[in-house]
Amino acid sequence: MTEEGDDDKGSKELHALLSRWKVEAPSEGLSDRMRRSYRAELGGASRSSARRIVLPLPLAALIAIGLLLLGALAGRGLRDPSVPGGAASEVTDRGGLANLRPLDDVHVRIDGPGGDDARP
């Protein structure tokens, strides 16, 4: 018998010997664990894709530009005192807490059935 033939025979014998070490199938617990992981990862994928709104690209771009313009206008309005609605922020900016003064006197007047009950 040739050396190659001996080697081939040896390989077959070794292969037959190695095959005596068998490994069982994985447990059912692994399948359950895998399903749970799948649901955690992708369970909501089909629901979320069903809710997705599909728009043509030009329309989506127009909407995006419109939203940006609206945002920019709103930002300008807050800073411009000539714009109604911008006035409040102007007063706040100028005055701040520095303009706060304590009140001189406080009079509390309670009107009830017993007549006037004014106190200093």
Partner: peptide, 15 residues
């Protein structure tokens, strides 16, 4: 299909 949320497709692939 599994990536779209089809669990059955994933199970076939896994098994």
């Amino acid at each position: 299909r599994a990536a779209q949320g089809e669990e059955d497709a994933f199970v076939v692939l896994y098994e």
